[in-house]
Write a protein that binds this DNA or RNA. Structure first.
Lengths: 248, 248
DNA sequence: GCAAAAGTGTTATAAATACACCCATGC
DNA sequence: GCATGGGTGTATTTATAACACTTTTGC
């Protein structure tokens, strides 16, 4: 029924899932990468991911690969599909398409080097995208699209709080926006926006003593998922696009 | 190497593409559907789509299937990936995942019934989603998600003009918003928003005589792709969600 | 003239922006 | 006291919402 020499034949395909896991760490946006332990691209950096198994759901495969390759428990993570990459030439081993997922997580330690990976670790996104060597496969493209998606999501949703360890301060949350968008926000206007949007953050009543300055009020994530009206990059976009361009 | 009885084995998968093609026709949002000519789901309505072929790109497969099954030339269409659906149980024939695409097009005639399809035709989206029988496979879910994506895209982008045949009037464009969102907009405020957003529409200088009333100025699509600030459903969302709920 | 739809103007409200200023802490 | 960041207040500008009003057509 299936004849490889017939270009009109259906193609049997192997399917992988790849994960773009972002965090804010040391005031920079970082992404979880592994160093590949096998060819192709042996020794190169890549997104964690791997083949789906018989009867396995796509999102289940993503969680499993994340656990296996990086030791990160993704059960609390909100995984969202980014896009599917299916260029016939994207994998030298043959026809492999990949379903890319995106998730945002608070800064957490990563240890374990798993089966297919020599090591898993956080790397600054801007640095990774500037490096000449680049990532394995088409992972540079995936990472770029994930970055743009994350930036856009901060505008219309409350997911920025997913980067924060509870309880957190308004300044912690603002830092997330500043790091992901690449420019500074006005602290007083930002606080107003966040505190006056129902369900974005909930005050705990506690305060945290800082190294310097007045202690800051602490908050937990609220229940709202959408920001309306949104928190737009608008006027600053000209500026932010400069820094995006610099990454290309 | 691959052992079907081993649940840890990589799964060889067949990949399809499915297309959600929307148009506004007779003042309703309609979707291009085919009637399936073969099992499974023979005789049932389904999204146009089919298997990708050896060495074929995903978007190329989408364009080809559209042409084959509906006779529609998609080369001028902006196809955008919606999401990939990969539930192990979604296709009774075995493991088949599908990459869904979304496109908006002006009202155009559809004729031809192609290879795998008995007939292709436009159907009102609200009617399709209300029908008990439902679409083949998980196409109801795909259609619902496509509808929400399209509604959302009208807020942040200028794609609504993709529904209009050039040249068009501001009222034509407003009708698109009203039909897709399911509620009326204020004509004067809408016109201001559209004409004052750089690159949304360009005046041709011509006018069109209507059946009734004053002739309307004609416009072409502009070059802008993003709307900033967006044209939000905001306050009306409560109302629009009612009509969405009614579709479920 | 009337009806109908295009198109303009005006006012009220809400939100984003810019920035001055006060507060609470460590030293 | 000072420096530092947290937090409040306010004037300006910009965008939306609601709606009155004028214009241009067919009949």
């Amino acid at each position: 029924m299936i004849n490889r020499s017939d270009s009109r034949a259906r193609e049997q395909v192997l399917v992988t899932v790849d994960l773009v896991i972002f965090t804010v760490r040391e005031d920079r946006l970082q992404v979880l990468l592994i160093e590949r332990g096998q060819p192709p691209f042996e020794g190169r950096l890549a997104l964690p991911g791997g083949y789906i198994r018989v009867g396995e759901r796509l999102d289940a495969a993503a969680l499993r690969e994340l656990q296996e390759e990086t030791g990160v428990d993704g059960s609390q993570l909100h995984l969202e599909q980014l896009r599917t990459y299916g260029d016939p030439e994207r994998d030298p081993r043959g026809r492999v398409i990949t379903v890319a997922y995106l998730a945002l997580t608070p800064d957490m330690p990563v240890a374990r080097a798993g089966t297919d990976a020599r090591s898993a670790d956080w790397r600054p996104v801007d640095q990774v995208l500037q490096e000449e060597a680049g990532l394995a496969f088409d992972h540079d493209v995936i990472l770029r699209e994930a970055l743009e998606r994350a930036r856009s999501q901060l505008e219309y949703t409350t997911v920025a709080s997913a980067f924060c360890i509870e309880p957190f301060t308004i300044a912690d949350l603002r830092c997330v926006y500043e790091v992901v968008w690449g420019f500074k926000l006005d602290p007083s206007n930002f606080r107003r926006k966040v505190t006056r949007t129902d369900g974005f953050v909930e005050p705990t009543g506690e305060h945290r003593v800082q190294e310097l300055g007045r202690p800051a009020a602490l908050y937990r994530r609220g229940t709202a998922r959408l920001l309306s009206p949104p928190l737009l990059r608008s006027s600053e976009v000209a500026h932010s696009q400069l820094s995006t361009a610099a990454l290309r």
